[in-house]
Amino acid sequence: MLNLIIADNQLLTREGLISLLADIDNINVAGIADTPAQLKTMLAHLKPDVIIIDIDPVHNFNIGDVKEIHQDFDLTKVLVLSNRKQKNEILEVVNEGVKNFVGKNCSRDELISAIYATAKAEQYFCESTMKTLFGDKLPAKKVEGIPVLSLRETEIVNLIAEGKPNKDIADELFLSVHTVRTHRKNIIKKLGFTFKNAAELVLLIGYINSYLDQL
């Protein structure tokens, strides 16, 4: 049984989530918090598997609350459910270490998939969020449209996503910097676009992995 806490001070959102999840046998809404203080008290007593939190300073919860959760309750996994729709707003959250993000316009199936992924410490971003960030640069939703990376390319992608520069990657994998640069060029060619930073790459990996899990 997955125990959840919903952290959102908007009544309709909370009730909507409870209703959407009511018939899922192995998901239980163990608590509802509408303030950061209330959330921390619940975390100490309920020890949930997943927190679904709306990051919106106007409505109490912000990115600082998520950072404190990670620091003080490191076994707790966080799923951000947000109305943030602008690319810079989403990347602001991702750059603070959020690995699971769904928009409030996502489907019920996406929300449930996101909860399961979060509980397993797997990355998940809903499709509408990915479209906001990458638009038509996303791989097509068909098997032959998903870029297939080699084992070495996958290793390099993961190190890039950690924010490591070419020299550090080369040292860790016992490669030359020139070889790493060549691999990066091949990765960019396969993905179909140049990623600007580690956060964008992390998002794309999450999209690809979440889709492959459904095949």
Score class of each variant (00 low, 15 high):
Ile156Trp: 07
Val58Pro: 08
Thr194Asp: 12
Leu175Cys: 12
Ala22Ile: 11
Phe195Asp: 03
Asp8Asn: 10
Ile51Leu: 02
Phe73Asp: 01
Leu11Val: 12
Lys104Trp: 07
Ala198His: 07
Leu175Met: 15
Gln123Gly: 09
Gly97Ala: 02
Lys167Thr: 14
Ser107Asp: 06
Ile51Asn: 00
Lys40Thr: 06
Phe193Glu: 04
Phe73Arg: 01
Ile169Glu: 06
Ile32His: 11
Val80Asp: 04
Ala121Phe: 10
Val102Cys: 11
Ile187Met: 07
Val98Glu: 03
Leu21Cys: 09
Ala198Gly: 00
Asn60Arg: 10
Lys85Asp: 12
Gly192Arg: 10
Leu138Gln: 08
Ala119Gly: 07
Lys167Glu: 14
Asn100Val: 00
Glu200Arg: 10
Ile187Asn: 06
Gln86Cys: 00
Pro165Ala: 02
Thr41Arg: 14
Lys104Ala: 02
Asp109Met: 09
His183Tyr: 15
Tyr124Thr: 00
Ile156Gln: 06
Lys40Ile: 08
Ala30Thr: 09
Ile27Ser: 05
Val58Gln: 12
Asn3Ala: 04
Lys185Pro: 12
Arg84Gln: 15
Ile32Gly: 02
Val180Asp: 10
Arg184Val: 14
Glu153Gln: 15
Leu11Ala: 12
Glu200Asp: 11
Ala33Trp: 07
Lys47Trp: 03
Asn105Arg: 14
Arg84Cys: 13
Asp171Tyr: 13
Glu162Asp: 15
Gly206Leu: 07
Leu133Lys: 03
Gly135Val: 01
Ile115Pro: 11
Ile146Phe: 14
Pro139Val: 07
Asn88Met: 11
Thr179Ala: 15
Ala119Met: 04
Leu215His: 13
Phe125Ser: 06
Ser176Gly: 15
Glu15Phe: 10
Asp56Glu: 10
Asn28Gly: 02
Val177Ala: 06
Ala114Ile: 02
Glu92Asp: 09
Ala198Val: 04
Glu122Val: 05
Glu144Pro: 08
Gly145Trp: 14
Asp8Val: 01
Ile208Leu: 11
Arg181Gly: 08
Val177Ile: 14
Val102Leu: 08
Ala140Ile: 13
Val29Tyr: 06
Thr132Ser: 13
Ile188Tyr: 13
Arg108Val: 13
Lys85Trp: 09
Lys85Cys: 06
Lys167Gly: 10
Phe193Ser: 07
Val143Asn: 14
Tyr116Asn: 13
Leu173Pro: 15
Ile52Asp: 03
Gln38Asn: 13
Lys99Phe: 12
Lys87Gly: 02
Asn60Pro: 00
Asp54Gln: 12
Val177Gly: 01
Pro57Val: 00
Leu11Glu: 12
Asn60His: 11
Lys104Tyr: 03
Ala199Thr: 04
